[in-house]
Design a protein around this nucleic acid. Structure first.
Lengths: 201, 201
DNA sequence: ACACATACATACATGCCTGTATGTATGATG
DNA sequence: CATCATACATACAGGCATGTATGTATGTGT
């Protein structure tokens, strides 16, 4: 018996919460919001639904918490570091590559999975997702506009449409390729093409 | 009262079947396989579940029929015409553009929607989808290989990985852009980038 | 025109999953 | 160490969607 370590309540709850969030992310990502059973999520994390309902009000709140959790880590690992890059074109390409690396963690796919499932629906999860994507798209559009003013991104379709395509290419390619060793290079290729940048070769 | 036209049984059943398939495609695409209710699908087509269960063994068979139905129209409108184009690079770019136009019909999104929902699961629908995508990916890989031999596609990542990225970019961009007037141009940009082709400018 | 088959509607039964209420064990406080 | 609070498990209840069985109307063969 591996010694019943005495943990403080705050520690216990944080450990449990994180385990549940991770299992939930995997569950939502693999089975979808509607198909996954809370029992599976809890059991996968090593608990029962009792723990889950103690920490989250229900399935919907759990999904919202997962979205918040994943988007936080995304910002930390992809969004924030990208802001250090001055040149707009470089920054967008770097972001794409960082996103591809980020998506190697299986939990990352949960955002795309949920977005597809809730696309065009009136649901709290759907609203959370659009409130997450909308500013991101706006930011990308702004970077594109700046890039064109500076001359590092060639002219073409309107920035907002281009931003949508950029994000779509990002997710589509990373999801389809599904990991190393070519995910980063191929994602970069795709977004370069979308932005109208020449391939570096 | 609009005259009770006397239709033959074969006609009745075909009309009904098609209406149900179209509603099912919309339903699966909007709500997902697990979330949509067969009652909604039937009612949307102007029938009840009675008609649905008379024509299809159940939800699963309905989904399989929808997949078959959509893939047929895709082949007719995108796959087959593309084969007329000799040059490999041109053919792949044209296919992407034709796919973008094809996706303007709302029912087209059903394949991507189902693929995301069933990705990595052991389910009859999942198998049907992989059996549909696998040959397609193989074909694209072959065209890429030929294109490189001929010199119309530059060297780069292995053909299979490139084919995955090509299809991912295709779906990602069309789904994200979501229609005219820029869908075709942006999709072409993305796949050109993935394939390593120079942008025509 | 009659009996039969089939397209489709309505009514019923079953199972599963969410949500809630209750119970138990472990950590906190005096 | 005794009492309380909290993390988590187990037990119960309700709803909702699938699937099935039965009923009705429309087309078909003789």
């Amino acid at each position: 018996m591996p010694k019943p370590v005495r943990r403080t309540q705050a520690e216990r709850i944080e450990v449990t919460r994180n385990k549940l969030l991770e299992s939930a992310a995997r569950g939502f990502s693999t089975y979808g919001y509607g198909n996954v059973r809370l029992d599976d999520i809890a059991r996968d994390a090593g608990y029962t639904r009792g723990a889950l309902y103690h920490l989250f009000a229900g399935k919907e709140e759990l999904a919202l918490a997962v979205i918040d959790w994943v988007s936080r880590t995304w910002r930390a690992e992809v969004g924030e570091p990208a802001e250090a890059i001055a040149d707009p074109a470089e920054r967008l390409v770097w972001t794409a590559q960082a996103h591809a690396r980020y998506c190697r963690k299986d939990v990352a796919a949960v955002l795309m999975s949920l977005r597809v499932e809730f696309a065009g629906r009136d649901h709290a999860v759907a609203h959370a997702l659009t409130e997450l994507m909308e500013p991101l798209k706006a930011t990308v559009a702004k970077v594109i506009t700046r890039g064109r003013r500076v001359g590092s991104i060639p002219p073409g379709p309107p920035p907002r449409a281009l931003a949508s395509a950029y994000l779509g290419a990002l997710e589509g390619v990373t999801a389809a390729v599904g990991g190393p060793p070519h995910d980063v290079a191929l994602t970069a290729r795709a977004v370069r093409g979308v932005l109208g940048l020449p391939n570096p070769s």
